[in-house]
Design a protein around this nucleic acid. Structure first.
Lengths: 304, 304
DNA sequence: CCACGGATGAAACTTACTTTCACCAGGCGT
DNA sequence: ACGCCTGGTGAAAGTAAGTTTCATCCGTGG
């Protein structure tokens, strides 16, 4: 009988499988049969019931239990769980993800999905990593104390601008979004010290947005730019620059990754502002949530 | 009736945890208590016995079993094993990241940013993982061959709907987005066989969107739902159901993670459709890009 | 107010797991 | 060679875990 079982069992380093095959020779014949089954296909073993496994190993349940104890487990259920975990962990490698930026012409949908998700998630993560908390802090402060917040964005960035406006509005801040240049310019002309103007442009070259931001600045408002390119023209008219980190390659997947990155930044600012005044923000949010409640039908329910 | 409903239950790719949190709202109160325990700490749950878990969730074993069945498992042992496997796979969080859904009151901006980005990125990844390529394929096919595509979405989901509309429009598909119920209903009434209607609702309970989708369906259009909850009412009026996997916790970070997830799905569909006819799509995209060129100022340049 | 249907837990029941124990085979001292 | 000991083993008993059934409760709508 393996006397060392107890000892090494408590340690049981690296993988459980490795551990088992290590002390395989020290096991009794019947236990070895069990061990071999387990080692050769941990996942399958995890799925079996003790009786099942015993039968497969041409032995009795009692021996399986003994085997469990021999390898340092409390009992069969524990072994089962450890086995499942082990098996799951070693399935990873065969994940041939399509990491390359572009999508090959012959790609099937599954590949497309994987690629897009990868890039999108990446854009979000990398954006967060390079965001300067200090700058964010200042922007949050400016917005928190602003008399009024104007948000500009054209085309795709317009959605983000609009989203930001809605968010701020929902927590009781006075925010506006202008889809067209003329009303935006008009509004910017009315800004003053203590107000904030936010300009969103992925490329940083959208003349409409730049123009409006410039106008706002000359009126004394704090200007904030959100763009992917830290040296683009829009940064020249902004007091604070926040950048996204989407590395769009082709037109193709196009705006989405950058959109997500922009939304993430907007969300950070929003939460930052909301966090400054929890109770007030919470109250406002609850009120707005309640307002749309009547437009919801009976919640999720069991299907037959 | 949503064909994919049953499938998605048995399909249940991606993460089991994600899957569970998706149908959390469709569970009964007692089952929800169990679900929350499981989701919040899968590894711990895997270690518990059914009686243990039941006690912790302040309910009976019977309810735990019911919960197992509700999420598509045969019984408790299977759940346990899957849970263990799942937990093992997500060895991810190496740093003391604030992975828990919520942001602590005292958090500073850097923490907030990290948390948001983490959750956002996660939502995107997990959404992609659980997306059923087969369903996507069918939706892409329907859209590719559609005479006309109507897209509905209210509030936050409206942005996504609008984004989708714009994307499809840019590659030459005839797509419409309606911000209000009445025009949407009017339009839906004019749909017919060969047309496609897409309804977007995070909760899946937005009555306006459901109503419009239903209308579209009775007119013979193919209906597609995009929601976070596979058993929500909207799925009952959809021929195809696509789900996102954002596990929003509190109001707080609120809509953003789900928004990103929705956009990702939309992007996948878009690319899928575009891929069906590369040259035509490329040409359309180039034309539209050129159109806005005059609104850009001299590209990125060195700062003084 | 009652009928209805879903949600729920107590208890009965089944299955899985664990322990006990008797048996067997081989080693070994006499 | 004979008993006697020892570790390995499975049958069976015992215990705990998981599953089903069913009566009850509670909110909903007629």
């Amino acid at each position: 009988m393996a006397k060392s079982a107890k000892i090494s069992a408590s340690h049981e380093p690296g993988g459980l499988i490795v551990h088992i095959s290590g002390l395989l020779p020290s096991l009794s014949p019947a236990e070895q049969r069990v061990a071999r089954l387990v080692v050769s296909d941990p996942a399958a073993a995890a799925r079996r019931t003790i009786t099942d496994l015993a039968t497969a190993a041409e032995t009795s349940e009692a021996t399986v239990i003994r085997f469990c104890r021999s390898v340092g487990m409390d009992g069969y259920p524990q072994l089962r769980i450890r086995l499942a975990a082990e098996a799951a962990r070693r399935i990873e490698p065969p994940d041939a993800r399509v990491v390359g930026g572009d999508i090959p012409p012959g790609a099937d949908l599954a590949q497309i999905i994987a690629t897009i998700a990868f890039n999108d998630a990446r854009a979000v993560e990398e954006t967060a990593e390079q965001l300067d908390p200090a700058v964010c802090e200042q922007v949050v402060e400016a917005i928190s104390g602003a008399g009024r917040i104007d948000i500009y964005g054209a085309g795709a960035s317009g959605f983000v601008a609009s989203d930001f406006q809605q968010k701020l509005h929902r927590i009781g801040r006075i925010a506006f979004y202008f889809p067209d240049v003329h009303t935006a310019l008009t509004s910017a002309a009315l800004l003053g010290r203590g107000d904030v103007a936010v300009g969103i442009s992925h490329t940083g070259t959208t003349s409409d947005v730049i123009e409006v931001l410039e106008q706002a600045r000359t009126r004394g408002a704090v200007t904030v730019a959100l763009t992917n390119f830290p040296r683009s023209p829009i940064t020249e008219v902004a007091d604070f620059v926040l950048t996204t980190a989407a590395r769009e390659t082709t037109y193709r997947s196009g705006a989405t990754a950058s959109r997500l990155a922009q939304l993430t930044v907007v969300d950070c600012l929003f939460v930052g502002v909301a966090a400054r005044n929890r109770s007030r923000a919470r109250k406002a949010l609850e009120a707005t949530a309640e307002a749309v409640q009547s437009h919801r039908v009976g919640a999720n329910r069991r299907r037959a």
